[in-house]
Amino acid sequence: MAVVFDRTQGLAEKQFHYCPGCTHGIIHRLVGEVLEELGVLGDAIGVAPVGCSVLAYDYFNCDMHEAAHGRAPAVATGIKRVLPEGVVFTYQGDGDLASIGTAEIIHAAHRGEKITTIFVNNAIYGMTGGQMAPTTLIGQKATTAPYGRDAVDTGMPLRMSEMLATIDGAVFVERTTVHNVAGIRKTKKAIKKAFEVQLAGLGFGIVEILSTCPTNWGITPVESLKWLEENMIPYYPLGNFRTPEEGK
């Protein structure tokens, strides 16, 4: 009798507060598993954003900071610059990273900060109740886009991975999804690679993970998986945008 799947040491005991079916929980688990498998839990220092995952500081089994909205990459820079051997990561939502925090994420990448960013894109502001985010899709309804997002007024949704991939300091940029098992497994590989890039001191790494928000999308958790596949993936193509050449 062998255990093939069990709770990772990378997570604290505390139960997640996330809504039923919210895939934040999956992503938390993947980060915890990767930190444990890489054997770096004891050196890990994470930075939680402001958003649904603001309480992430209670969920990871490592030292944590809670940062001001959008400023996690700057906080992480401060930590990493003092503790180069620390394994420093930020965990951010799309409101935090793609809206108020765009300068911080672009400049952390631009400086090639040796930190790892887990970027959860669910195309909406979750914690504050469903407002439009820069990643909200055209036509998608939100509490501040009640008639559906309109590109004329609000521009086109922001593709952060493609933008960050133009920055040399961002040596690893990948977009994945957690709306199905295959995607979850690929996400874990990408997260692991991003941390390995940090451990090798190669530069800044980010994994953009398409994620669901059943509550604010106004559909069931199971329907959310389908909605993500049919609406988000066409606009946010999955794949790797940048990775250090092998052997480097």
Binding site: A2, V3, F5, D6, R7, Y18, G25, I26
Partner: peptide
């Protein structure tokens, strides 16, 4: 392990 993989709340443990 599929069910455990997609569970957002780490409810599921699997043994062989």
């Amino acid at each position: 392990g599929n069910c455990a993989t997609i569970c957002p709340d780490v409810v599921i443990k699997i043994e062989t």
